[in-house]
Design a binder for these strands. Sequence first.
DNA 1: GGTTATCGGATGTAGGACGTCCGATGCTGG
DNA 2: CCAGCATCGGACGTCCTACATCCGATAACC
Lengths: 243, 243
Amino acid sequence: MSAIVVGSRARYSARARLRALQTDIMDLILERELDSGDPLPTENELAAELGVGRNTLRESLKVLQAVGVIEIRHGFGMFVAPSGFDALADGMAFHGRLSLRHEGHEAEQLVDVRQALEAGLIGASIDAVTTEQMQRIEAAVMKMEEAADRGETFAEADAEFHRLLFEPLGNDLLMNLMAVFWKVYRKIHVEIGVDEVDLVHTAAEHRRIYEAVAAKDKPLASELLSRHFDGIRAKIKRVVAER
Amino acid sequence: MSAIVVGSRARYSARARLRALQTDIMDLILERELDSGDPLPTENELAAELGVGRNTLRESLKVLQAVGVIEIRHGFGMFVAPSGFDALADGMAFHGRLSLRHEGHEAEQLVDVRQALEAGLIGASIDAVTTEQMQRIEAAVMKMEEAADRGETFAEADAEFHRLLFEPLGNDLLMNLMAVFWKVYRKIHVEIGVDEVDLVHTAAEHRRIYEAVAAKDKPLASELLSRHFDGIRAKIKRVVAER
DNA sequence: GGTTATCGGATGTAGGACGTCCGATGCTGG
DNA sequence: CCAGCATCGGACGTCCTACATCCGATAACC
């Protein structure tokens, strides 16, 4: 059963062959109706079944693990991954940092996408948010304000704020994407400094956004979020110009 | 020079070690100020430098290639990859297909994200679009209409339409995210049939969106796009319910 | 001078050997 | 009878060797 086509992977370029191997593995998972958490065949079985050496197979498996398709547990086995695009953050962060040495275009693209996502979905999130969640959001705001007063940076609270803001939607994909964006932003953030004026200003921005959400004012919340990202974009431009 | 720390990769779990190896490679690129298109050391040199075997190194290199950090050319060498937010596609498309077998929640989440992106960014795209690009968009619309008249499906033209709609922004990340959606949607499309009513209706929807863009009416275009995705979401719900 | 042949280096693939980790089995002692 | 521990077996992790394949470049040839 599950007749895996082997011969099709014949005389393409090396990259295409590796890619074909990856899709073969994914197809195998789908054909056998495996689900998140289900175990995959062992490496040796897979290698025999797909007609490739264990080394070649492992290279594909590692890629699939990196893009969140499978999970590999040392000494136990391989499983269909629940979700999560962790490793992708590295690649995107890398290009973001690389682009800062030029025009910073790729870093800006990240901000553009995040801006559209957050500004576009805040309305739906306002509809779904509970009072308990609102309290946690305000707590994050207060943490940012306190840190700003002490002149300390507050990357954690900032991330927490944005995460909590869209948690009510229950959209795992969105949360994963935002986690990725945040990892990238943090890496970039390290390369540039932040002065105290920025800290207080940023904290105040988040306070206003929180108040708009609390008041269920969707257009205002969307507008404030959008402008928040305009500020981030301006900061990136400034950093690029300085070098 | 470029004293690469080897000892730090000592006694962690396997996954952490592989991840550390990847960041070591990326750090090496950044430390040596390599740029897009610059060559990396050979596999053997890197393996020796980082203190790992060639096989272990290759697994990391393949991952970095998959996430778009480096480019590997058989028989020639490895290079820092030129731009690129590719790679999200495979993992997300896989999980989208996986979820279709259940409630289709991830597929719906995908639509939610895309809705926010397209509705939120169409305004900026309207500002940037050229007349030449508008002509290509209309051509895609006509192709859809002609196919609908013949009772044929037009997934390609549909994808082309949305791609052209946001090409003016020059945002690679956005284009890749949209490509992901189409990979998933194409799979759905294949698994079910579409009736002719849907075809004509969908083609007409795209015609109206095109006209709104041509008239530079940003709010209308955003609204039409948003409703277009409402329809898609309903269709996915129907597909999931049928099984 | 242009074309072709060959060469060298780099990546691609395969297979084997051994290390490391983890869960499970079964033993031991209370 | 049960809890804790030791052992075992399977599966992934790493490394090495050997050879295949590919590509660019040099050199030979017409």
